[in-house]
Every structure is written in structure tokens, then in C-alpha cells.
């Protein structure tokens, strides 16, 4: 474990708490103008369920196991809240990104490009590819609504920073222990790349107190 990865995981936690806080505070998934994509949250739950199949078999540390359990539980809880508790405020007409395309694409790629053709390894690889593009429905929704509540932008900032810091962690680990993992490196770079446009608007507008509005 290194500082970059620890802070990255904490940013991931922060993003989940921001989302839960927002939903709890506004008692909905759709504030005045900011909407949370159910598809993205469902994709994240799928990512954790397919990635942590080794939850009981591969004990790394108490930290690792605790975080895995928290990510699985919190992502399922968020899906539950959106699907049942705050269903009335969830308007599928705005969540129009074709999630089946990213699920199908990640599954196909995982069957072709993986480290081992075993069920667990292919599921893990699928979760890596899926996580890289899981934010697309949410970003797509932002382009449709054209703006987002500040708290939603902080959610996206934390989420984007988490994987961005993982990139730094991988550079550090390559440099100090010759750690190489092409699949997570390339997927992580794509994932962080998808946030670049958002980061630009976030830093140039939101942090200056302006509203988050897409040009």
C-alpha cells in the first residue's frame, strides 16, 4: 500500500458518501437541476460484484476486505434507494445512455483480452473494463440537462480523482516494485480520460463559484 492508493481509495469513499448525503438531503435523486444516473449506479454495483468474487478466497488485509464489503454494500444500497425509495424522482427518460452497449463491449473485450481464461479472471477483467466506462451514462445525463448541482460536481470530482490517483499509484509501484498490469493501466487511463472535460469545467467554473454549465 502507498499513500497515492490510500488517498485514492479514500476519495472513492468520499464520492460514495457525497452521493448518499445528496440523496438523503434532497430525499430524491433529482434535485432542481442535477440528476443522478441510475444506470451508472447499477453499473458500479455490477463492477464491485464481478470484481470481488475473491472476497473470501483471497485475503489481502483487513483494510482490503473491509473496503470490498463496503463498496459492494454501499453500491447495492444506492441502487436500492434509487429503484425503490426515491423511485418517484427517478426519470428514466433522462437516463437514456445505452448501458447495454458498454456492458456488451466490456464483456466481449474481457473474453478476448485477459490474463487467464477462467471464470473468476474473466469476471475480474470485465469489471475493470466496465468500471472504465460506467460513468458514461452519468456524464451523458449532464450533457442533456446541461448543468448540475454543485454537490453532484463534487461527487464527480471525487470519483474522477480516485482513479486519477490510481494512475499515480501505478507509476509509483512500477518505479518501486516493477509492478506491471496493462489491463488496469489502460482501463484506468481511459476512465480518467473521460473526466478530463469535466475536470476542466470543474476547475474553471465550479471552484470559482460559478454554476456548472456546459458550454
Amino acid at each position: 500500500m502507498n499513500l497515492f492508493r490510500l488517498v485514492a481509495d479514500l476519495m472513492h469513499l468520499v464520492s460514495i458518501f457525497i452521493l448518499l448525503l445528496k440523496m438523503q438531503k434532497t430525499r430524491s435523486v433529482a434535485g432542481r437541476c442535477s440528476r443522478i444516473s441510475f444506470k451508472t449506479q447499477a453499473l458500479y454495483a455490477t463492477v464491485f460484484l464481478t470484481r470481488y468474487t475473491d472476497l473470501f478466497a483471497n485475503f489481502q488485509s483487513l483494510y482490503n476486505t473491509t473496503m470490498k464489503v463496503f463498496f459492494i454494500a454501499s453500491s447495492l444500497y444506492i441502487v436500492f434507494l434509487m429503484k425503490f425509495k426515491f423511485k418517484a424522482t427517478n426519470d428514466p427518460r433522462l437516463d437514456t445512455f445505452k448501458a447495454q452497449y458498454v456492458v456488451g463491449g466490456a464483456a466481449a473485450l474481457a473474453l478476448i483480452v485477459n490474463y487467464a481464461f477462467t471464470v473468476q479472471e474473466v469476471l475480474w477483467t470485465f469489471s475493470i473494463y466496465l468500471e472504465a466506462v460506467a460513468i458514461l451514462p452519468q456524464l451523458f445525463m449532464l450533457t442533456k440537462t446541461g448543468e448540475a448541482e454543485v454537490i453532484t460536481t463534487h461527487y464527480l470530482f471525487a470519483l474522477g480523482t480516485y482513479r486519477g490517483l490510481y494512475l499515480v499509484n501505478w507509476i509509483y509501484r512500477y518505479w518501486t516494485e516493477y509492478y506491471v498490469d496493462w489491463i488496469v493501466w489502460i482501463a484506468g487511463a481511459v476512465q480518467t480520460g473521460l473526466y478530463c472535460d469535466f475536470f476542466y469545467i470543474y476547475f474553471t467554473k465550479v471552484l470559482k463559484g460559478a454554476k456548472f454549465e456546459l458550454p
Binding site: 492508493r5 481509495d9 472513492h12 475473491d54 483471497n58 489481502q60 482490503n64 473496503m67 470490498k68 463498496f71 490474463y115 487467464a116 479472471e121 475480474w124 490510481y166 509492478y179 506491471v180 498490469d181 496493462w182 488496469v184
Partner: peptide, 10 residues
């Protein structure tokens, strides 16, 4: 291709 050792990252 070479698979990394144990999956020690989240």
C-alpha cells in the same frame, strides 16, 4: 501475457 501476482488492489 504475464498476469500480476495476487490481486492486492481494490
Amino acid at each position: 501475457s504475464s498476469a500480476p501476482a495476487a490481486k492486492d488492489e481494490l
